[in-house]
């Protein structure tokens, strides 16, 4: 049932034509095909069904079967645009496109805003930021007193929430990251420039001729 090489790719659930995906993203056709090699490896790690479920995603991120992680879960949910509980190949390529070094800053800023807007209200609220800080502390085993956390939140909202209404809207976020560009570092994956080198086996399964790629 998994995604087997060559003709079998077309039977992979959610498989989309690499030429079409390349036309919608920053990737070349060859790069989309190389991403399929990565996708196959992740999507077959627990259940070989040609789709990435949350467990497989977390396994690929952490290299071990960890219990729930707020951030990995949030990224998964943003990749799973059709809210099916799984990521298909088209979702995977379109989401990774945001992380390509050549993708516009605006797209990266918008994605990062959605990432931190945990409850999808269109605002990053203080309680969401606190929830993320607590998740980070749990993950890293760093200990911070509650009053320290509140001080960090005060400082952050003083800087980011320019109209001081207790929540950060998209325009405030755009301004805040322009002043703190390091916050967008996680939104760029230099690896995506070299994806065909990292997964050279795509050449053996390529379904398009070199001129098209």
């Amino acid at each position: 049932m998994g995604c087997v090489p060559s003709k079998g790719r077309r039977q992979c659930p959610g498989y989309e034509d690499p030429v079409f995906l390349a036309s919608q993203t920053t990737f070349s056709v060859s790069e989309v095909e190389a991403l399929f090699e990565l996708f196959k490896s992740i999507s077959s790690s627990v259940i070989d069904d040609g789709l990435i479920n949350k467990e497989e995603f977390v396994l690929a991120l952490f290299k071990n079967r960890k219990k729930e992680n707020l951030f990995a879960s949030r990224i998964f949910d943003l990749f799973d645009v059709k809210h099916k509980g799984v990521i298909d190949f088209g979702d995977f390529v379109r989401a990774l496109h945001i992380f390509h070094p050549n993708t516009s800053l605006e797209d990266k800023i918008n994605f990062s805003f959605r990432l931190y807007d945990l409850d999808n209200t269109g605002f990053i609220e203080r309680q969401e930021v606190k929830q993320m800080l607590l998740a980070l502390l749990g993950e890293s085993e760093m200990k911070l007193a509650d009053e320290t956390i509140e001080a960090i939140l005060d400082k952050t909202f003083l800087e980011a929430d320019t109209n001081q209404d207790g929540k950060i809207d998209l325009s405030e976020w755009q301004y805040f990251v322009s002043k703190n560009p390091s916050l967008l570092r996680i939104m760029t994956l230099p690896y995506l420039r070299d994806i065909t080198t990292a997964f050279p086996s795509f050449v053996f399964y390529s379904e398009v001729d070199e001129a098209a790629a």
């Binding site: 990565l38 707020l70 992380f99 930021v129 800080l133 890293s140 960090i152 400082k155």
Partner: peptide, 26 residues
């Protein structure tokens, strides 16, 4: 830098769960 001098998002962005580079590690 001390966590107190950093803004919350600088801290949050250090989460391993947000580091998608590990997807590419074999």
């Amino acid at each position: 830098a001390s966590p107190v001098t950093m803004n919350a998002f600088e801290l949050i962005s250090k989460s391993r769960g947000l580091n998608l580079a590990t997807l590419f590690e074999k």
